[in-house]
Amino acid sequence: MDPYLIPALDGVAYGLLLFVVAAGLVLSFGVAGILNLAHGTLYAIGAYVAAWLADGGWAAVPLALVAGVAGATAAGTALAGLLTPVKRGDHLTQALLTFGLALAGGSLLVSAFGPEDLPVRVPAALDRPIDLAGHSYAAYRLVFIVVAAVIAVGLYLALTRTRAGMLVRAAVDDPQMVACLGVNPTRVRVGVLAVSGALAGLAGVLGAPIIGPGPSTAATVLLLSLVVVVLGGLNSVVGTLVAALAVGEIQTLGVALLPTAAPFLLYAAMALILAARARGLLRRWSTA
């Protein structure tokens, strides 16, 4: 077990990072019925802002968090505006529009920040390995696990204990009924995409030392979070969390256990799980 301790722990860190990004994506898909292929670009905005502002001091951390989240939230809101003429559930037009925005947005980010992958400087106290049961592990990632777990719990409480959260869950189950309750669907869409952008931006700032900003960041993050969201059942935050942790562990613990199968693991697991579920061999996650 000992050589697998650090990979297993790292799988949690990686999985939680994927969860925070994918939570935004599952909200926009489950609640607003929007397939947002520009979601990875929202993460990239947060990550670039972190690289731009972070200077290795503590003061820069809240600054980068505020600026990164604000930037991605604004971009998410703008996205909601751009998507107004496209009907809910019209996933292929949404795909065309958001993929186009992702291509153009990624290109603009590269013109603004340059073609190099950028360094992200974290405070010196966190930028070092620490000793963990005889193994070394990056201090930043350990702290990240705690912070991301707090975010996950907060998100769960917000969805289950607040009025807005209950509305969100109701909207997943029955969008027509929520519309009948007198809730303006446009406001729901704008609100959901803003929150979705905020989560992606938050993940981008916090995750920049793990998946750093560069020309391929948006595509990497988008693909992984799509995998997580679909594995999680497309409309469930709890399902997304479980899927994110599973994907994290497949990519760390799975790779450590089966190094020769590493290139096939993720997609083979995904194809088999999704196909089995489509045939009714596995039950779907309930909405929560």
């Binding site: 194809a271 999704l274 489509a278």
Partner: peptide, 24 residues
Amino acid sequence: ALVVYARGVVVLMITLAIGELAIT
């Protein structure tokens, strides 16, 4: 058998996985 039972976005992701596995 992997593809024809699924619908919608799930088909997209299963076929994406098949494509990625094929190029691997």
